[in-house]
């Protein structure tokens, strides 16, 4: 496979990657430089992202290009702009209007998501048959017991006494197994990110450089 010498982009990326890794030794000026660049670029990125992907195609172009049909876009435009009145102390209260619409809408949508998209199907998924052969029945029983006991553990309206105490205890055991699984997956997730960076440094930057310098 022919290896191309790293370009300026790869050099910049490799430098910033190494600056960030230097934090593992201790906090230092190179890390803080890279961190500051990252913070600034992140905020700048969002401005470009919003303008190119949302505000231009969904607001400015239709509103100013076809006002006759799209005049109603003035409403979200105004609601968006008055959000910024919170920086003018005397008019800050007006920004609550658009905040109210924004929060209100998402609250309404969220209610449906939770009820229709989570509580009902998840409860339905727990209503499992118990006469489907020994092994499947056992598996179904594990699910039913797990869901009920975990819910009892999270039921804080009455103290965990009497029959609730051992039941909640079983719930904790289920949670611990699940958290263990989550830990295992978290390790994989974090290592994956490290693999990504090391693969870049080795395969996209160092290896072509070594091949370029020494041949082979």
């Amino acid at each position: 496979m022919e290896l191309q010498l790293p370009g300026i982009g790869e050099w910049v990326a490799a430098f910033l990657t190494l600056c960030a890794f230097s934090f593992l030794y201790k906090d230092n000026i190179l890390y803080r430089f890279a961190e500051s660049v990252f913070v600034g670029v992140s905020f700048g990125y969002y401005i470009g992202l919003a303008k190119i992907n949302t505000l231009e195609p969904n607001l400015f172009r239709p509103l100013f290009g076809n006002f006759g049909e799209q005049w109603s876009l003035i409403v979200p435009f105004l609601l968006g702009v008055i959000l910024y009145l919170r920086y003018i102390p005397k008019l800050a209260w007006v920004s609550n209007w658009s905040l109210a619409v924004y929060i209100g809408y998402y609250i309404g949508v969220n209610l449906l998501q939770r009820l229709q998209g989570e509580i009902l199907p998840q409860a339905k998924g727990t209503m499992l048959p118990l006469n489907v052969g020994l092994w499947p029945t056992l598996c179904n029983l594990v699910v039913i017991i797990g869901v009920v006991t975990v819910l009892i553990y999270f039921f804080f309206s009455s103290p965990h006494k009497g029959v609730l105490k051992p039941t909640a205890r079983i719930g904790i055991y289920f949670l611990m197994i699940s958290f263990g699984a989550s830990f295992g997956y978290t390790v994989m997730g974090r290592v994956s990110l490290l693999i990504g960076r090391l693969t870049f440094l080795v395969n996209d930057w160092a290896r072509p450089l070594v091949h370029g310098a020494f041949g082979g």
């Binding site: 009920v148 719930g171 949670l175």
Partner: peptide, 9 residues
């Protein structure tokens, strides 16, 4: 099974 049950709770 055990994980999905706990997550469902």
């Amino acid at each position: 099974f055990p994980n999905a049950a706990a997550q469902r709770g």
